[in-house]
Amino acid sequence: MKLALASSPASVESARKQPAIQVSNLSIVFDTNRGQTIAVDRVSFDVAPGEFVCIVGPSGCGKSTVLNTIAGLEVPFEGDILVEGSRVYSPRPDVGMVFQQPHLFPWKSVRRNIAHGPRMLGKSRTEANAIADDLIAMVGLKRFADAYPNTLSGGMQQRVAIARALANQPRVLLMDEPFGALDAQTRAVMQDNLLELRDRIKATIVFVTHDIDEAIVLADRVLIMSAGPGRILREVAVKLPRPRSSSIMVEPTYLSLKKDCLDVIRAEGLRAFNQSDAS
């Protein structure tokens, strides 16, 4: 499998091309035993091809729900979602997803797990295994190609999950707090790995997290969501140079961005607190 180098992200040219993802007035309402809850309230945003967007917000703000809807896992919803120009109804092979838990198939080896996607798309066992071996090398797990998931650490399992999601060469990669279940050290290493990986794969990435540091380190653009019902409070462009690594977290440019984001988050936190206090 040849990996194409990424074109320059979020440049003027890409903005003129059709967005990879278009979310317009997305609203999702859940029926609970206490009546209806508005999980997501008229969320709209676009993602340019090859762009890395992070959605950051507190727990329960609906950011995972938004991601699941783009993935085609959550229906029905109000509003429009277009991926690569076509409407989303159900899971599709050009959209890959990594979840907070690796959800590796426990009865398959690492190689077989990664080969699953290509096999479902009709590739032969040899072809699928070859694709898997390329990805195994890319995520640095060559020694574990025949190992079973229960023998791997959490970080290694997530690396396999990422490789598995990339096996069908998706145009869009959705990541739902993939490093949330890992310890701080592993998380930092995984963030750096993802940054390296991102420069090698030509995919649009939407990454959901509740960690503002993680969001700014990884993204080209950060979308800050309010607490439930989820709305987009602010879009912050992250104009930090690439290639990047987590070591950028001490730079003044980074810190000023972080301050801007924290101001927005703090203002929202205060508003939500006063609102719940008032009632």
């Binding site: 896992l73 959800h103 699953h116």
Partner: peptide, 17 residues
């Protein structure tokens, strides 16, 4: 595990399979 089913769906596994 529902997560396995969702992961399988995202990898192109048809529901009938």
């Amino acid at each position: 595990d529902r997560g396995l089913i969702r992961a399988a769906l995202m990898l192109g596994t048809p529901r009938r399979q």
